[in-house]
């Protein structure tokens, strides 16, 4: 690649710019400032509250030290246990589906020139719809008596299914809706990743006579691994926070079939107004998700090393 010609100016600085402390701080401090300002207090607050019992009298908070009792109580909370189990299934199934579909669609649409903008516009559509509308709309479409899906099945001669009401299909239905909703997220990022890949590598591969599969596995995939990792991390975190859709679709039912952890958390933290216990649950969830990410990342490192 050529050095931009317009930049051939007087040679003044010899050393690398990375040494320039002023620039280093200038570029980093806005982000640092905003994060310090707006994230430290909520997180510290969460941590402190998780060791307290908080009640209200005469309009002000009464905080008493509760030690680890909230964390102990987590172990006995059956709703929390059910929520965690379902969230694991939900998160991994949904995120895996979204990653695979998103990557597939991105690869395919990067191969075409005609209609590319149209495909891209269509594939982005679902994330433009607010979560609460997704919940309401899919609830109607999956309705047992009147829903579009059961009407479609009836045309094929298949009996109507109780998609959201039967314990066997409820979680699966929620996962499908989530895949529909969030695949665009992965699609968009993978497409951007593919577009920024250097073209000369592909040309070289083609000259070497690589097949499409070989090209994908040996050239494309290794190059977009960083994009995949970051996309996976953020999708996983978002999947653990899933709320709006479940709220209108099933509210966690039937029984606890679709109870997700963010739902339990909302119930305990907000509805029941147990700030101390809710904070402990938040910290526990943050810890678990962090642990998952660390495991996933180190697994990738090991795979890359071998």
């Amino acid at each position: 690649m050529t050095v931009p010609a317009g930049l051939k100016m007087a040679r003044k600085h010899g050393a690398s710019f990375g040494d320039d402390r002023l620039w280093r701080w200038l570029t980093f401090s806005p982000a640092l400032g905003l994060m310090l300002l707006l994230s430290v207090l909520p997180l510290v607050n969460l941590l402190i509250s998780s060791f307290q019992d908080i009640s209200w009298a005469d309009g002000s908070a009464v905080r008493t030290f509760a030690g680890l009792s909230s964390y102990h109580a987590l172990a006995a909370d059956t709703l929390f246990a059910a929520g965690l189990a379902n969230t694991f299934i939900f998160a991994f199934a949904a995120v895996a589906g979204q990653m695979v579909l998103g990557l597939g669609l991105a690869l395919l649409s990067s191969k075409v020139t005609r209609g590319r903008v149209l495909y891209r516009a269509i594939f982005i559509l679902p994330i433009l719809i607010p979560g609460i509308v997704i919940g309401a709309i899919w609830k109607l479409m999956l309705n047992y008596d009147f829903g579009l899906v059961n009407q479609g099945l009836a045309l094929l001669g298949i009996m109507p299914q109780d998609w959201l009401g039967a314990p066997e299909t409820a979680l699966l239905s929620v996962i499908m809706v989530d895949i529909w909703h969030w695949t665009p997220f992965c699609f968009l990022l993978f497409l951007a990743g593919l577009e920024s890949l250097p073209q000369d590598v592909f040309e070289a591969a083609r000259i070497d006579g690589a097949s499409a599969w070989q090209e994908f596995f040996h050239v494309t995939l290794p190059l977009i691994i960083p994009t995949i990792v970051v996309t996976f991390a953020f999708r996983l975190v978002l999947a653990f926070k899933v709320f709006d859709e479940v709220y209108l679709l099933t509210s966690g039912g039937p029984g606890t079939a679709t109870e997700v952890v963010s739902f339990t958390l909302y119930q305990r933290f907000f509805t029941e107004d147990r700030i101390g216990y809710g904070s402990a649950m938040s910290i526990a969830v943050i810890f678990i998700v962090s642990l998952l990410l660390v495991i996933a990342l180190s697994a990738r490192r090991q795979a890359a090393a071998s």
Partner: peptide
């Protein structure tokens, strides 16, 4: 038959649709 899955909106839906 799916009473365990019926929420408020669906109960109202059943009534207004004559079901």
């Amino acid at each position: 038959p799916k009473t365990a899955a019926m929420d408020q909106a669906e109960v109202i839906q059943s009534m207004v649709t004559g079901h």
